[in-house]
Design a protein around this nucleic acid. Sequence first.
DNA 1: ACCCAGGGTCGTC
DNA 2: GACGACCCTGGG
Length: 293
Amino acid sequence: MKEQTYKIAKIDSFKLKDIFECGQCFRWNLEPDNSYTGVIKDAVINVKELKNEIVFTGISDKNLDIVVNDYFDLSQDYSKIKKELSKIDEYMEESIKFGEGIRILNQDLWECIISFIISANNNIPRIKKIIEAISKEYGTEVKWKGKVFYLFPTIDQLSNASVQDLRNLGTGFRDKRIYNTTNLIKSKNVDLDKIKNLEDSELIKNELLKLDGVGPKVADCIMLFSLKRYDVFPIDVWVRRVMNDLYIHSEKEESVSKNDLQKLAKEKYKSLSGIAQQYLFYWRREEKIEKEK
DNA sequence: ACCCAGGGTCGTC
DNA sequence: GACGACCCTGGG
């Protein structure tokens, strides 16, 4: 692990708050100087936005520029994506204006699977807390700048945890799901390397659904956030809420069927449904957080 | 003190 | 396909 710095000129669609607070990731934390520090795969990185450049500092075995370009998907042309989506309707336009700095990260598949199993019927502060606890207990320790960080455990590392161990870390009823899923992956009953090489989204989803604790919503999140499948449309309480308010106007939003929402999303957002979902989710959820202040 | 909701999934009917 | 249960935490 060597300390490295990597700088790039400011680019379009890159705002730290939007990227890290839009709900796609759980291991980035705000620092007093408004930079963010996070643990990704096998690196610890701090990102700081300056006037004309973005500075990445961190320790990593691999070259930091390669890690950063891949993780932040820097070659993706968001101005084009936004232009496409903005044309669809005024709501899309407004939500994009609100979350203009959003960028879908390219996260590690294994970590993403466990993280979103934990997300089920849970809130973001507690999800972050549980992932941190699991990493601290089973992940590799990394010291940097006088602080201690913990990488997300590898499959082998996490397979040392019993159901009870996981329960003790605060996972709640998700303990068995994490345990079972870890073993399904370790035994290669579900082979992550194979999944990464699959072309067809449907095939990938079918494989992911074999994992305990992975239903349609979690599978979609995994595909969107770690496999670059931008055509999926994860439906959670927030997205159902905002879609109902904007397009459907049902008295009871919970009675709007997932199938109808999927169809609507496909019609409107097509192959960019996942990215549209992320703008909508962030827009609606931040609005609520703002109101509570 | 009590109730509710939170990036759902699973087992059962 | 609908329905309730489910750990636990934070906020009203």
